[in-house]
């Protein structure tokens, strides 16, 4: 499955995932506690420079993310231009862009496995309430395997229904597809769980 990670040899890629996440959290706290245009614009400029130079990311990665939230930026600026003043609107819009791009830079420069490791580490204290952090890794691995499996079974059911003729459209088609799909994949998950237990997953 295609991840949003962009492989490059760069300083930012080598920085530990935990550090990058911490910086992201701090950045978020700063731009929200000091809601002024210079702070927001500085954060945006810093993030873009960091991503392009220290992360050696192609500009297209940042452009794609910016485009995804463009509707929000326009809506927020337009709303504030009418309701309060343009400056508040621009500040809020720039702040949004800075945060979204910062998060995109972290995602593009950090491997999925490194981030899963951070999740497991963060969840380590949950051991006290009986949660085994290794189970989180197992759940992530199972979900990743189930995504193509579920899609494949859905295709198979759709093909079988098409072979029997008749074509249903709209919400009803979704119901006719998902009921057999759910039963089929629930059985599958049940079997996978038992198979894992038979191989000692429950004691791991």
């Amino acid at each position: 499955m295609l991840a949003l990670y962009v492989p490059r040899a760069s300083l930012l890629h080598r920085t530990p995932a935990g550090v990058k996440l911490l910086v992201l959290v701090v950045l978020g706290a700063v731009v929200f506690t000091v809601p002024t245009l210079p702070v927001a614009a500085g954060a945006l400029a810093g993030v873009v420079l960091l991503g392009l130079l220290a992360g050696r990311l192609p500009a297209a990665v940042l452009v794609r993310q910016a485009r995804a939230v463009a509707v929000w930026v326009v809506a927020i600026v337009a709303f504030h231009a009418v309701a309060t003043d343009v400056l508040t609107g621009v500040t809020t819009g720039v702040r949004l862009l800075a945060l979204v791009l910062a998060a995109a830079v972290v995602t593009a420069t950090t491997r999925v496995t490194a981030l899963v490791a951070v999740v497991e580490k963060v969840c380590a204290p949950l051991r006290l309430v009986g949660v085994r952090p290794a189970r989180i890794g197992l759940a992530v691995a199972m979900a990743l395997r189930f995504i193509p499996l579920v899609a494949e079974r859905a295709d198979r059911i759709r093909e079988a229904q098409a072979a029997r003729g008749g074509r249903v459209r709209g919400p009803r088609a979704l119901v006719l597809l998902v009921v057999p799909l759910l039963v089929s994949v629930l059985q599958l998950a049940h079997t996978v769980g038992e198979a894992l237990d038979a191989r000692g997953a429950d004691t791991a």
């Binding site: 949003l4 990670y5 949004l96 999740v119 992530v140």
Partner: peptide
């Protein structure tokens, strides 16, 4: 968690940490 670790599993192939800091 799958979204946060950078898998494009949200509708429209979106994902990553950006969606956790956006307005929606």
């Amino acid at each position: 968690v799958l979204v946060a670790v950078g898998l494009p599993v949200l509708a429209g192939g979106r994902g990553g940490l950006s969606v956790f800091v956006g307005p929606s």
